[in-house]
Amino acid sequence: MADNHTLWADVQLLALHAPELARTLRPGQFALARDPTTLDPYLRRTLWLYHIEGARVAFTLPARDPLVVRARVGDTLDLLAPLGRAIEFDSNARHVLLIGEGTRVAPLIAIAHDAIAQGRAVVLVTHTPFLPHSAGQGAWPAHLLSPEIEYRTGDGLDAELIAWADAIVASGSAQLYRALADAVRAARYRLEPGFARVLMDLPMPCGTGACYACAVETSRGVKLTCADGPSFDLIEFANQRTR
């Protein structure tokens, strides 16, 4: 472990020296981590990719997590990674809209950088209307973002933005995802397969499909967030019951 500090609010940054992972991990994927010296806490923790620089891979996770509290720079973590499917944009997707809520913006940042590196225009929005008015649930701080990301706060479901976008990735609540589906249908008349993806942030105890604790019901049947996700096509998820 190369770094362990609070990035903002309840978001902790863990940076690891992990050369092999730095070569293979892709935005949208995740890692499951544990302290190899103890069974407490019992489950592996989900680490969301934040940034890769050389052999250094930075992840985010909740700042109050026991793994965060105990881990010290120089410690070794046991990782299962890369897990899940990466976010891949269609080659024709020139305009990418990323919509997050509060701390759930974190997993979108690596996706933003990747899209920009591929020559796409990116707008990142912290969607604030559904956020509870409690500490740490505000908009993602602009100073944590690099200048090439066009950043907005407020209504991420703005019709003009959605009309501008060739692809959308959202990270937030079920309420956001329902509203996004409605907004896309209103702005573009229909929700096309592949147009919008949503990130599911659920406990994923095993990461291998063994436990089915992260199973979600989609229009294409029961799927696993760890193996089939963690992002799903909004069209698969939009009409399912809220959890």
Partner: peptide, 10 residues
């Protein structure tokens, strides 16, 4: 098929 219990499940 069974969608399972409401979240969270663990």
């Amino acid at each position: 098929p069974r969608a399972g219990a409401p979240l969270p499940r663990v």
